[in-house]
Write a protein that binds this DNA or RNA. Structure first.
Length: 313
DNA sequence: AAGACGAAAGTGGTTGA
DNA sequence: TCAACAACTTTCGTCTT
């Protein structure tokens, strides 16, 4: 693992899967995970996106794209398009400015500063977006998600949905919506946890803005939690594979509908840990998955019964 | 002693009248 | 608007390893 950390310093280092020695690891920024292309092993979740957001593929593109300055981004209140006025009183040749010029520049700077985050909605947006970036880096989410969150938040502002709600609450709700939209498995609990807003409020705001903005969001697929949970529990790639297999069967039998996705994923991971002789206690799993042991028990009892698994304990 | 099990009561949200 | 309801949680006593 220490090796991995070092290699990560290099921008495009290639490294190989320690599990199967056969696949190459790829960074999946969408899910914030490092994944083996061969066996599907997830090395590290909460990967932080350090790369550039835009790339070039040949010299021509490079020149084109180099010239435009920073990419525009929705994660800054002015989309990163603001101009900076240097604080030094020098002109482009590095010579001192005349007193007359100096006074003019001083006035420009003053107004520039005032205009940038002047009216309340801009101020609001600036604060909300700083919250978003705080939360998403806390959760190890990628830049993509941040952008998506920012777009959703902006829409919420446009539709005047913030009124009567806290900025943090709506920001957290937008983040959650962006995660759901991008199929990144983060639970409402996790987001509420670091947002400093109650789960109730985040949930309420989330449903509200999702409805008002007509963001159609597919229900969470319990499958998406399996890599994360098994990774958190240090389960092997084959155990994870087994879990995915079980989940597939459960889905075919219609056992997934109406059930909490996290509880279901937790139960499946539990069963596969037992099946593969890598037993984890219900307690450990419940902690990793954020559900109670009771729920895991209920789900896995159902699963064993319906899938007619014989479990040797 | 730790883990697994299950009963009973409580919680927050959805649904349908 | 309110009650019924399903899923899940909390709590706690009992059994198993």
């Amino acid at each position: 693992m220490a090796e991995l950390e070092n290699q990560e310093e290099r921008e495009d280092a290639v490294f190989y899967c320690p599990e199967c020695n056969n696949g190459v690891l790829i960074k999946d920024y969408v899910r914030a995970e490092l994944i083996c292309t061969n066996c599907g092993l997830v090395i590290k979740d909460h990967l932080v996106d350090t790369g550039p957001e835009w790339r070039y593929f040949n010299q021509e593109q490079r020149e084109k794209r180099m010239r435009v300055g920073g990419p525009t981004t929705y994660t800054m209140h002015d989309k990163g398009l603001s101009t900076l006025i240097d604080w030094r009183n020098k002109d482009s040749q590095g010579k001192d400015l005349t007193p007359r010029k100096r006074a003019q520049i001083y006035r420009l700077r003053k107004w520039h500063r005032r205009i940038r985050v002047s009216d309340p909605s801009e101020r609001n947006l600036a604060f909300a977006l700083s919250e978003v970036s705080r939360m998403s880096s806390n959760l190890g989410l990628s830049q993509n998600i941040r952008e998506e969150t920012a777009i959703i938040y902006r829409k919420a502002v446009e539709h005047r949905l913030i009124r009567g709600r806290s900025i943090e609450g709506v920001a957290a709700a937008a983040l959650y919506a962006a995660c759901r939209k991008g199929k990144i498995p983060r639970t409402l609990d996790e987001i509420a946890e670091i947002s400093g807003v109650g789960k109730k409020e985040v949930g309420r705001s989330y449903r509200f803005i999702a409805r008002e903005l007509k963001i159609e969001i597919p229900p969470i697929n319990p499958m998406e939690f399996i890599p994360r949970f098994s990774n958190a529990l240090n389960l092997s790639g084959s155990a994870q594979k087994k879990a995915i297999e079980l989940m597939q069967k459960a889905y075919e039998k219609g056992l997934t509908s109406g059930r909490g996705p996290t509880g279901l994923a937790a139960a499946v991971v539990y069963i596969s840990s037992v099946l593969m002789n890598e037993r984890r206690t219900q307690r450990e799993i419940s902690e990793a998955a954020g559900v109670t042991e009771v729920t895991i028990r209920n789900r896995y009892k159902e699963l064993i019964e319906k899938l007619e698994l014989e479990i040797i304990v």
